[in-house]
Computed example of a mutant assay.
Amino acid sequence: MSALDPYKKSNALITSRFFWMILYDTPGVIEKKMHKLDSMMMKNVRSAAINADCVLVLVDACKVPQKIDEVLEEGVGDLKDKPPTLLVLNKKDLIKPGEISKKLEWYEKFTDVDEVIPVSAKYGHGVEDIKEWVLSKLPVAPPYYPKDIVSEHPERFFVAEIVREKIFMQYRDEVPYACQVNVVSYKTRPTAKDFIQVEIVVEKNTQKIIIIGKDGKALKLLATAARLDIEDFLQKKVYLEVEVKVKENWRQDEGLLKYYGYGGKIRAL
């Protein structure tokens, strides 16, 4: 549907007749932290690792192989009982089979992981191999959620994610990374379209000008694209109102970051 928030941990639930699993999608590991937001993101990563039965590390197969043990240390930390770790080598469809073999051999030799699996997320190649690996690491346990639940997040979470996705698709450079999307109001109305009010928080007035665009055209384009996807997701018509606000250096404001939901811990189930 949409790219989940790269700043926060998100989860999805996968169930079948034979298994049940919770997937935590965390921010990428940041070695060079530039904002308090970065530090809080790393708390999310470590919190997920502490409670995980296994860890998957995603690597771009198109890039030159590099040692990631320091990255793993940054993400997993100095856990006494390090969870089983799988390195997922994505985008194998973009490189030659011989090159894949060389990169597999390199990562297996120079990286402290339990296994390396090449995949193509675009075409679904190797996904079943990942699932089988994960299932082999999960303990037997009762389900924690009803079978029809696919995420513990409410609808307003996905509304914010859709708006965020459109920001990343429409704007370039650093502007999307300086944006925080909040659903201010979500009102269901039996006799009218649901009313959704969203605010996009940026750090500078220049960023606000870019988001809005000349005569408000850029913001209107963003809101229309987001509304159509929101309606498709919710399967009903909505009235979407989007405004842009400036909160200087919000990524450095610990109080605001906590208010926006960053730095929380994943509870052990």
Rank of each mutant, 00 (worst) to 15 (best):
L4S: 09
D5K: 11
P6Q: 07
Y7H: 11
K8N: 15
K8G: 10
L13K: 09
I14W: 07
F18V: 00
F18Y: 05
F19Q: 09
D25W: 08
I30K: 08
E31R: 12
K33A: 13
M34F: 05
K36A: 02
D38S: 06
S39H: 15
M42Y: 03
K43D: 11
N44K: 02
V45L: 12
N51V: 15
A52T: 07
D53E: 06
C54K: 00
V59P: 02
C62Q: 14
V64Y: 09
P65S: 04
I68W: 01
E70H: 10
L72P: 08
L72H: 05
G77K: 09
K80F: 05
K80Q: 07
P83W: 01
P84G: 04
P84H: 02
N90E: 05
K91T: 04
L94C: 15
L94N: 14
I95K: 06
K96A: 01
I100Q: 01
S101C: 13
K102W: 03
W106R: 04
Y107F: 14
D112H: 14
D112Q: 12
V113E: 10
I117F: 07
S120W: 03
G124Y: 07
G126M: 04
V127M: 13
E128A: 14
K137T: 00
K137D: 02
V140A: 08
V140E: 15
Y145W: 09
D148T: 14
D148N: 15
E152V: 15
E152I: 14
P154A: 01
P154K: 01
F158H: 02
A160L: 03
A160T: 07
V163Y: 02
R164I: 03
E165V: 04
F168A: 13
E174S: 11
N182S: 13
K187V: 10
P190D: 03
P190C: 01
A192N: 11
E199K: 10
V201H: 01
V201P: 01
K204M: 12
N205K: 15
N205S: 15
T206Q: 08
Q207H: 08
K208Y: 01
I209L: 13
A218C: 03
A218M: 06
L222M: 08
L222E: 05
T224A: 05
T224F: 12
A225H: 11
A226Y: 07
A226L: 13
D229M: 15
D232K: 15
D232W: 03
D232E: 14
Q235D: 15
K237T: 14
K237M: 08
Y239A: 06
E241I: 06
V242D: 06
V244Y: 02
V244K: 03
V246S: 03
E248V: 07
Q252H: 12
Q252Y: 10
D253T: 02
G255M: 04
G255S: 04
L257D: 00
I266Q: 09
R267T: 09
